[in-house]
């Protein structure tokens, strides 16, 4: 056999392997139930364990400051700061704290951290281990936004055309329920493709839980702890609009107060409230 033959053999083998994977994938996607594997992405490319006190790694995280336009588009009531009162690392945990205080015209302060311009990636497994806050009006989220999100000029796209993947959203007044969604052209805001997941004999504000997605060119799997509770497929998305999830996204973790999704805090809401993040991990390379 000459060299070319060898090469073609290798290519054939690779093709066969790929085919196998594809068959496997097809087999899986034909049967999107909870028996699917959720650990295809095994190559850890980003991990923040928040193990150093008083240190937020500026190579990974940046901040959004202020109260946005119309409360970040949702009539949220908090003012985001990067003060240590609102965001800090202590005892191996990132703490985002919502405080009730008069601050720059807002009634509450909190924090929002993001990997925009620092860590962006298309596809992969994104997960974080989080203990959520509690009470009416608390709206924490762990989510991804298309790196090309902008005002539509230059190479940017306006929301929702740039895409949004909400790995975890939660209403403080529903302590056992989280929501996983995608937003894009044709399926945004109230029309997003979404599914909720409820704990039966536990709650999200009394202990840590792992929230993650497994995002491939063909689907996004949503899981909480070891339970895969939803798969949103490309086909499902394309029935409503355009699949815009083939480009890099960045991570956002924030704790909003009030806003359209949940309503304002009431007199029973206890402040301050904390969102505790044990780690954030990102993997790539699926098989």
């Amino acid at each position: 056999m000459d060299k070319n033959n060898k090469n073609s053999m290798r290519i054939t083998t690779t093709l066969l392997k790929t085919l196998c994977v594809l068959v496997l994938l097809i087999a899986f996607s034909c049967n999107p139930d909870e028996t699917q594997t959720v650990a295809e992405f095994k190559n850890l490319v980003l991990s923040d364990e928040f193990d150093t006190d008083d240190f937020i790694d500026s190579d990974i995280w940046t901040f959004d400051i202020g109260n946005g336009t119309n409360g970040w588009g949702n009539n949220e009531e908090q003012f985001y700061t990067k003060r240590t009162e609102n965001v800090s690392v202590q005892n191996g945990t990132l703490i985002i704290k919502a405080i009730k205080e008069d601050y720059s015209g807002s009634d509450y302060t909190s924090s929002k951290i993001l990997t925009k311009g620092l860590k962006e990636q298309a596809y992969g497994r994104f997960e974080a281990r989080i203990q959520l806050p509690t009470g009416q009006g608390m709206w924490p989220a762990f989510w991804l936004l298309g790196a090309n999100c902008g005002d539509g000029t230059a190479d940017t796209e306006v929301w929702p055309n740039c895409g949004e993947i909400d790995i975890m959203e939660y209403r403080g007044q529903e302590p056992t329920v989280v929501h996983g969604s995608v937003h894009g052209p044709g399926y945004a805001a109230g029309n997003a493709i979404t599914k909720t997941y409820a704990l039966e004999n536990d709650r999200f504000d009394t202990g840590f839980h792992v929230f993650g997605i497994e995002w491939t060119p063909g689907y996004i799997n949503y899981y909480v702890d070891d339970v895969l509770y939803n798969q949103i497929t490309r086909q499902q998305v394309e029935e409503k609009g355009t699949w815009v999830f083939d480009q890099p996204f960045y991570i956002i973790i924030n704790l909003a107060v009030g806003g359209n999704f949940i309503g304002a805090p009431n007199e029973e809401t206890v402040f301050p409230q904390t969102m505790l993040i044990d780690y954030v991990r990102v993997y790539n390379k699926y098989l």
Binding site: T134, P175, T176, E200, N201, R203, D205, T206
Partner: peptide, 10 residues
């Protein structure tokens, strides 16, 4: 019952 889903004692 052990509900497991009640918390936040005040």
């Amino acid at each position: 019952e052990k509900l497991g889903n009640i918390g936040q004692p005040q």
